[in-house]
């Protein structure tokens, strides 16, 4: 079975009350990028993953994990 990078971006974002646009503004990307990462369509670079984790106040490992 192929590996997939799953994430808890949407759960964490809604938990702290941020919209996609607000999160996008914080990490310096457009809303579509946040949207595609949330949906698992786009795999972010390490740099963006760290920025997203920092903006959401959790570690990268808590935000992203590999699903088998």
């Amino acid at each position: 079975m192929p590996e997939r990078l799953a994430n808890g971006l949407k759960d964490r974002r809604t938990e702290i009350g941020l919209t996609q646009a607000e999160l996008a503004e914080r990490v310096g990307v457009t809303r579509k990028t946040v949207n595609t990462v949330e949906n698992g369509v786009f795999t972010p670079s390490a740099t963006l993953a760290i920025k997203l984790a920092q903006a959401l106040g959790i570690s990268v490992e808590q935000l992203f994990w590999i699903e088998r």
Partner: peptide, 10 residues
């Protein structure tokens, strides 16, 4: 710079 973000470049 923001329009040409990571996803757009990809």
């Amino acid at each position: 710079s923001m329009i040409d973000d990571e996803l757009t470049r990809a």
